[in-house]
Simulated scan of single mutants.
Amino acid sequence: MTITLSDEARQLAGLFETETEATVKDCLLDEEFDRVIFLIKTGEMGKAIGAGGEHVSRVEQRIGKSIKLVEDAPTAEDFVANTLAPAAVYNVTISENDDRLAYVEVAEEDRGAAIGADGRNIDAARRLAERHYDIDDIELT
């Protein structure tokens, strides 16, 4: 699947890669919540964050927006779980009926973290899952 980035998203991804030396696989501009979501190559999350979060903080200051990082994964199930971090995800099942739905079992105490303030985390998870795995929706169970 080919992901098309806007000029602004490409510039932000390039800036993030230069500042952190981590590989950005996708960049979403979340205008509603004034933030940028970076999809980071598997295994490079530590490099992206930096010691004590210094890399993220430095880029946030430069661009004037908050940043959410998501680590890529080789399977749709692992990918969906990563998009909902830091919530504890127990299981992800992908339904292949009429629509591709991801049913996610989340610890009850982490439902709020999975959804996020004003639904920002679940919205980002849905957008990324659709872009990368053609998943039509994510439902928490």
Rank of each mutant, 00 (worst) to 15 (best):
Q11F: 09
L12T: 04
A13Q: 08
A13H: 08
A13K: 08
G14Y: 04
L15V: 13
F16T: 11
E17V: 05
T20Y: 11
T20N: 11
T20F: 11
T23K: 05
V24A: 06
D26H: 06
C27F: 06
E32L: 15
F33G: 01
I37T: 03
I37V: 08
L39V: 13
L39D: 09
K41T: 09
K41E: 13
T42H: 00
G43D: 08
M45Y: 04
G46N: 03
G46C: 03
K47A: 03
A48K: 10
I49T: 09
I49C: 10
G53H: 10
S57I: 07
S57H: 09
V59D: 03
E60H: 06
E60I: 03
E60S: 11
Q61T: 10
I63S: 02
K65W: 12
K65Y: 13
K65V: 14
S66N: 12
I67N: 12
K68G: 05
A73I: 02
P74Q: 07
F79V: 03
F79P: 00
V80S: 08
A81G: 05
N82T: 13
N82M: 15
T83L: 04
A87T: 02
A88I: 09
V89P: 01
Y90V: 15
T93I: 14
I94G: 02
I94E: 03
E96D: 12
N97S: 04
D98A: 14
D98Q: 14
D98H: 14
D99C: 00
L101T: 07
L101I: 13
L101Q: 07
Y103V: 10
V104Q: 02
E105P: 07
V106M: 13
R111V: 06
R111N: 07
A114D: 06
D118L: 07
R120S: 13
N121E: 03
A125Y: 05
R126T: 04
R126Q: 11
R126V: 02
R127I: 13
R127F: 13
A129C: 11
A129N: 10
E130F: 10
E130T: 04
E130L: 10
H132L: 14
H132A: 12
I135C: 00
I135Y: 00
D137M: 01
D137T: 00
I138S: 14
I138V: 14
E139N: 11
E139Y: 10
E139A: 09
